[in-house]
Write a protein that binds this DNA or RNA. Structure first.
Lengths: 153, 153
DNA sequence: AGAATAAAGCAAGTATATTGCAATATTAAT
DNA sequence: ATTAATATTGCAATATACTTGCTTTATTCT
C-alpha cells in the first residue's frame, strides 16, 4: 500500500465520520486492491490478526455509509466491493452487472452497463436492481480452453 | 390439492426419473400453489412433519433436474420457485426478473421480460443471468400509500 | 495528558446448510 | 402379492456464515 493511498483511505473515513483505526484501513486497502468482490471469510483468511466479529462490523458500517456494497454469490455468501463514488449513506447506486465466475468463484463488478428501458409490470415500485450473471471470466475461460486443447483436467 | 394436480406432479417426477414420495409431492404442491419464491425455512415451517435435511435434498434434487430454480433474497437466503417449462437437467433458463419486495419480503418471478442486448466485456462467457430488483410489490405499495394517507403506522 | 466515547476483541449463541449412516419406502421382478 | 434391489427418508453430528452481549482497548477532543 502506497502512502498516498493510505492518506486517501484516512480521508474517506473522515468524510464518513468513522474513526481511523488499523482494522478499517486494512479492510479498505484489501478491497481497493481487488477488482472483484470479496467475502468476509476470504477477508478473514487474509487478515488473520483481525477478529471475525470486527470484520463483520466494519463491513456493515462501510455498507451503511455507502463505501462498499454487498452482493451474494452462487452460494449465498455475502461478497463486498468498493462502491463507485456516487453512493451515499444508506443509498446505493450499484446498478451494475455482477458477474460470478463458476470456475474461480470470483464476483466481478462490471460498471458502465446500459440497463435502461426495463419496464416493470404495473404496480411494482422499483427501488434498485442488480443484474446477476454466471459463467466464465476471461482468465478462467482462457484456462479452460487451454486445458481442453491439451487434454488435461 | 386437486386430484388432477396430484397426477400432474406424479407425472413430473416420473419424467425426471424421481420416485414418487409423499415429501416430494408435498413440496411440489406447495411451490406450485405460490406465485412467489419460497425459502427452505418457510417450507420447513409449513411442512413440520418433514425433516429439514430431506427438504434440502428434495430442493437440490429438483433444482438439478430443472424443476425448480433458486434465487437469493435480500438476506442471502435461498428461495425456490417452479421453473418455466423449458428448463432441463442441469440447465436453467430462469433469465427473468426476480423482484424482492422490501416490505413483505416476497420474491416474485416476473417472466416475459426483454433482457436482450446486454453486452458483456470481452472475454466473459455468459452462462445465465438474472435481474434482481428490490422495491415494493403492488400489494405492499398499495398498503403503504393507504397507511400514509390515514396517518397510521 | 486525561476524559469521553467509539471501536475492537472475546465468548457464546443462532441460523442455514452438509455429511454419514441406519431405517424405511418405492419399484421392479417373480 | 411377496420379495429383493435400491432410492429416499430421518436422525445425529458437524460445518459454515453470521449475530449479540459485554469487557477491554484505542481514538479523538479538550
Amino acid at each position: 500500500m502506497t502512502k498516498t493511498a493510505l492518506k486517501d483511505f484516512e480521508a474517506l473515513l473522515e468524510r464518513h465520520r468513522l474513526k481511523k483505526t488499523a482494522p478499517r484501513l486494512k479492510v479498505l486497502s484489501m478491497l481497493a486492491a481487488k477488482n472483484v468482490a470479496t467475502s468476509q471469510p476470504d477477508l478473514e483468511g487474509v487478515m488473520n490478526d483481525i477478529d471475525r466479529v470486527t470484520l463483520y462490523r466494519i463491513l456493515s458500517a462501510f455498507e451503511e455509509k455507502g463505501i462498499i456494497h454487498k452482493v451474494f454469490d452462487l452460494n449465498g455468501t455475502a461478497n463486498y466491493a468498493m462502491c463507485s463514488s456516487n453512493c451515499g449513506e444508506n443509498h446505493h447506486h450499484d446498478e451494475h452487472l455482477h458477474f460470478n465466475c463458476t470456475s474461480c468463484k470470483n464476483v466481478y463488478c462490471l460498471d458502465d452497463l446500459d440497463l435502461h428501458g426495463i419496464d416493470l409490470p404495473n404496480g411494482f415500485k422499483l427501488d434498485g436492481f442488480t443484474l446477476y450473471a454466471t459463467g466464465l471470466c476471461p482468465k478462467c475461460s482462457k484456462a479452460v480452453s487451454k486445458n481442453n486443447s491439451k487434454q488435461f483436467n
